[in-house]
Write a protein that binds this DNA or RNA. Structure first.
Lengths: 184, 184
DNA sequence: TTACCATATATCGGAATGATATGTTTTTTG
DNA sequence: CAAAAAACATATCATTCCGATATATGGTAA
């Protein structure tokens, strides 16, 4: 998901600074399906300015250095429209947690249980955050995207919680010496 | 998710070529939570060889150019263990589809419906693929990861299908002129 | 008052992405 | 059966992206 198109898309909702764009993209209401840091946003905005797809008004208040408020141009809207016209690339999910979990059997006993617990509370927090964003949201397309986020995170949470219970049960059975008496 | 650690992790399951690693990472049973192409795997393997974390046996059969079968070394296992010891980074989900969907109301009528339909069949295929992998899988940790993939993709599918129905209903109502008669 | 956090811009090295080049073997299909 | 397509296998390269860091100010909490 090209950062330039991402910037154009976000700016199509209203003018703002590069700082604001980063906030929306990596903390705000778009952050559950995209990600972009300063290191990609500022260069993207420079290139977009050069190409005439955005312009900025420099605000030079007393003391404060400079504050560039970017806004999308007509040519920028056309570029965005063009990008939206071709089919979107495939979704991609990356999970270091799942990667780590592959080696659960080669790591200390508490390894997986600790990570699972952390993941559960993290996911719970994500669900809460997305739900409250969804409640406040009056823009239908954003609501659709937020709803998607809620749906998959709730499913993830349910899966992890269910797994957690079976793990706890297993551990209890092993501790009580029940497994050995059955296995051997 | 560092490609070097990814390679070490995959090689910890058995020796194989760079080609095989790419296949597992971007088509195989790990591909639903990671992604790596030749452009990152081959350099990673070179660096890992230099560092002594992997070694390779060059197979020079008649005609065939070269086939490097990589295997992890003891130092590689230690490096992997070390990487696994620190907490995993946050999961990240990127969706061009959701990004595109943000602009549904500014695009032609059939725009969103077409993309939604495509996404639904794509997701259905993903669910099927993951489920069949899960059935064949006898490695418990991999089963956990696959189960996670099934869970979130099934949730995504359910969400999209439900949304699709409401979209179809709305379109039908609008076409029949029902909406106008109510709205005005 | 000292530290810390939010605002805001910007750069830089290292890493990853995506496409492409090259060449062989195996499989499919007309 | 031959031609075409797909799979096998390594490798590089330009562009893009990531993560950390530098800089500077104003507000707020310890």
């Amino acid at each position: 998901m090209n950062v330039k198109i991402l910037c154009l898309g976000i700016l199509s909702f209203g003018e703002m600074t590069g700082y604001d764009i980063r906030k929306l993209a990596s903390e705000g209401r778009f952050s559950h399906f995209c990600e972009a840091g300063y290191g990609s946003i500022y260069p993207a905005l420079s290139q977009l300015t050069e190409a005439g797809h955005v312009t900025f008004a420099e605000e030079a208040e007393a003391g404060k250095p400079n504050r560039k408020i970017y806004s999308i141009t007509e040519s920028g809207r056309q570029a965005l429209h063009l990008a939206l016209s071709s089919a979107p690339g495939a979704d991609r999910f990356k999970s270091e947690f799942l990667f780590h979990s592959l080696f659960a059997d080669k790591m200390p006993d508490d390894y997986f249980r600790t990570r699972l617990a952390a993941k559960i509370s993290e996911t719970r927090a994500t669900v809460e955050r997305l739900k409250s964003s969804l409640e406040k949201c009056d823009h239908e397309p954003s609501g659709f995207a937020l709803g998607f986020g809620v749906a998959i995170n709730e499913a993830a949470l349910a899966y992890l919680e269910q797994y957690d219970e079976t793990v706890i049960m297993k551990a209890a059975l092993e501790d009580s010496g029940f497994m050995e008496s059955v296995d051997e």
